[in-house]
């Protein structure tokens, strides 16, 4: 099948090519553009949830779906469990992942209630070693704008960490899971049961 460009399409693409060439820093490598694209879609989804302004339970459900779609959940769960993950059985790992996913959705979903009327904008992406750092700014009602940075794995193509004004999610969650384990004197099964209720 042959494809014929109409004059308008040709003109349009020529114009956009010229624009891209004229923009400094527009020459993103394919994967850098992909990382940015992922965060663009993620942010659009979050913004849609914020705008819809549903009930808290519905927002948490939406947020869990967003996490599953865009985040490298096995990595985040494994990091949060830390060194204790080495003594976990396959069944415990699976149970932990499931409980952790719900916990993250509840914890962050509740915070996103505060975002109603606000929005997130993507500023740009840069490559750091084997990851892409995508910086965004959150504009919330009645609050000074703040920075949220997503880290997207080069290999996984999903985000595995985010920094909210310098606060590292992976480190925060590993500290929290560690504290939950300490409270249960290192009993993994008891901690997983707690986690299913937490957040």
């Amino acid at each position: 099948m042959t494809h014929h460009f109409t004059r308008r399409q040709l003109l349009g693409s020529a114009l956009s090519l010229a624009l891209i060439a004229a923009l400094p820093g527009a020459a993103l490598s394919a994967t850098e553009a992909e990382a940015r694209g992922l965060v663009d879609r993620l942010v659009a989804d979050i913004n849609a949830v914020i705008t819809a302004g549903k009930s808290e339970a519905a927002m948490i459900a939406d947020f869990e779906r967003i996490f599953i779609t865009y985040a490298d959940m096995p990595y985040i769960a494994a990091y949060a469990l830390g060194a204790d993950g080495r003594r976990a059985s396959p069944a415990q790992k699976k149970a932990f992942s499931a409980a952790f996913q719900g916990y993250v959705a509840r914890k962050y979903g509740k915070q996103f209630r505060k975002f109603i009327g606000g929005r997130i904008e993507v500023n740009g992406a840069s490559k750091v070693k084997n990851a892409y750092q995508v910086s965004t700014t959150a504009y919330l009602r009645g609050q000074s704008p703040f920075e949220v940075t997503f880290f997207v794995g080069e290999k996984s193509g999903r985000f595995y960490n985010m920094y909210i004004e310098g606060v590292n999610m992976l480190l925060t969650e590993r500290t929290e899971i560690g504290a939950m384990l300490d409270r249960r004197r290192g009993d993994l099964d008891a901690m997983i049961r707690d986690l299913a209720q937490a957040g």
């Binding site: 990595y75 494994a78 990091y79 932990f96």
Partner: peptide, 12 residues
């Protein structure tokens, strides 16, 4: 820097 590949995620 947290390396997105330097972790064994087997089973998670």
């Amino acid at each position: 820097y947290i390396d997105p590949e330097a972790l064994d995620t087997e089973g998670f």
